Structures are given as structure tokens and as C-alpha cells.
Amino acid sequence: MKKILLAAAVSMLSFQALAAQDPEAVYARACAACHNGQLPMAPQRGDQAAWEPRLAKGMDVLVQSVTNGLNAMPPRGLCMDCTAEDYQAVIELMSK
């Protein structure tokens, strides 16, 4: 019984990690305005050198920064309907 419950819990966690929205679409509507170079302190999409120290903090910290806002970035990063999984997918997209 414990093995079945553990397998079910792992399955649920794997389903929850999927982004509900297309990361490209979220980036285009909510992130690109600042992360395409308009704000010099916002790391640009694909700038691995700029993203490296941020990624070193861990994905949970980055998602928390987007959710709460950081420096010039407003809370939720202009995506009011994004989930933590959506933010993670967009961060992964931008940092590669």
C-alpha cells in the first residue's frame, strides 16, 4: 500500500511541474518588454553569462524573485495568470 501511495505522489508531482502556458507566448507578452535589452539590469534572453549567477541561486529562488518582484521587476513580472511552473519554464527559456 505504501508503494502505491508513493508512486501516486511522485506521479502527481511530475504532473504539477508542467507549465500550463506556452513559455514563448508568456515571454512575448510579459517578459520581452524588459528582457530584450530595454532595461540594462534585466538579463537578456540567451545571455548565459548574465543568467549564470542567477541560476546558481537555484530555480526556487528565481521563481520567488519573479513572484515577489525584485529591483525594477514588479511582482509577478507582468504575468498575473502565471503559475510557479510557468515562471520556471520561462526562466529556462530565457537562460538558454
Score class of each variant (00 low, 15 high):
Ala20Lys: 08
Ile91Cys: 10
Cys34Asp: 10
Glu85Pro: 01
Cys31Trp: 07
Val63Arg: 15
Asp22Tyr: 00
Gln16Thr: 01
Val10Thr: 09
Ala17Thr: 07
Leu70Ala: 08
Leu5Cys: 02
Gly69His: 10
Asn36Ala: 14
Thr67Lys: 15
Cys31Phe: 12
Glu24Ala: 03
Ala89Thr: 05
Ala84Phe: 05
Leu13Arg: 11
Gly77Ser: 05
Asp47His: 03
Lys3Thr: 09
Met94Gly: 06
Asp81Cys: 00
Ala17Ser: 13
Leu70His: 14
Trp51Met: 05
Val90Ser: 08
Leu6Gly: 01
Arg45Met: 14
Gln38Glu: 15
Leu6His: 02
Met80Asp: 11
Lys2Glu: 12
Asn68Leu: 13
Ala30Leu: 03
Arg29Phe: 04
Lys3Ser: 14
Ala84Trp: 04
Val63His: 15
Leu18Asn: 07
Arg29Asn: 11
Val63Asp: 12
Arg54Thr: 03
Leu5Ala: 13
Ala19Glu: 12
Pro53Ile: 05
Ala19Gly: 05
Leu78Ala: 11
Met80Leu: 10
Met94Val: 01
Cys79Gln: 08
Gly58His: 08
Leu62Glu: 06
Gly46Cys: 03
Leu93Lys: 02
Asn68Trp: 06
Ala8Arg: 01
Gln88Glu: 15
Arg54Ala: 10
Glu85Asp: 13
Ala32Tyr: 04
Arg45Gln: 13
Asp47Trp: 05
Ala25Ser: 11
Gly58Arg: 11
Gln88Thr: 02
Pro40Met: 15
Arg76Asn: 08
Leu70Met: 13
Arg54Gln: 11
Asp81Pro: 01
Asn71Trp: 12
Ala33Asp: 03
Cys31Glu: 10
Ser95Cys: 08
Ser65Ala: 15
Ala8Gly: 06
Ala32Pro: 00
Val66Pro: 12
Asn71Ile: 01
Ala56Ile: 03
Ala32Leu: 11
Glu52Ile: 00
Leu62His: 09
Val66Ser: 13
His35Met: 05
Asp86Ile: 00
Met12Asn: 02
Arg29Asp: 14
Gly77Glu: 10
Ala17Tyr: 11
Ser11Ile: 04
Lys3Phe: 11
Gly77Met: 06
Ala9Pro: 07
Ala89Cys: 04
Pro75Val: 02
Arg54Ile: 08
Ala89Gly: 05
Ser14Val: 09
Cys82Gln: 07
Lys2Cys: 00
Pro43Val: 04
Leu93Ala: 02
Ile4Lys: 09
Ala49Ser: 10
Pro53Thr: 05
Ala19His: 08
Met41Glu: 13
Ala72Gln: 14
Ala9Cys: 08
Lys96Met: 06
Cys34Trp: 10
Gln64Ile: 00
Ala28Gly: 01
Gln48Leu: 06
Val63Lys: 15
Ser65Lys: 15
Pro75Ser: 11
Arg45Ser: 07
Leu93Gln: 05
Trp51Pro: 10
Glu92Thr: 05
Gln21Lys: 09
Gln16Met: 07
His35Arg: 03
Arg54Gly: 03
Gln21Ser: 10
Asn36Trp: 04
Gln48Arg: 09
Lys96Ser: 11
Gln88Tyr: 03
Arg54Met: 09
Leu13Ala: 09
Ala56Gln: 12
Tyr87Met: 06
Lys96Ile: 04
Lys2Ala: 09
Pro43Leu: 08
Gln48Thr: 12
Ala49Asp: 15
Arg54Cys: 02
Phe15His: 05
Gln44Val: 01
Leu55Lys: 07
Leu5Ser: 06
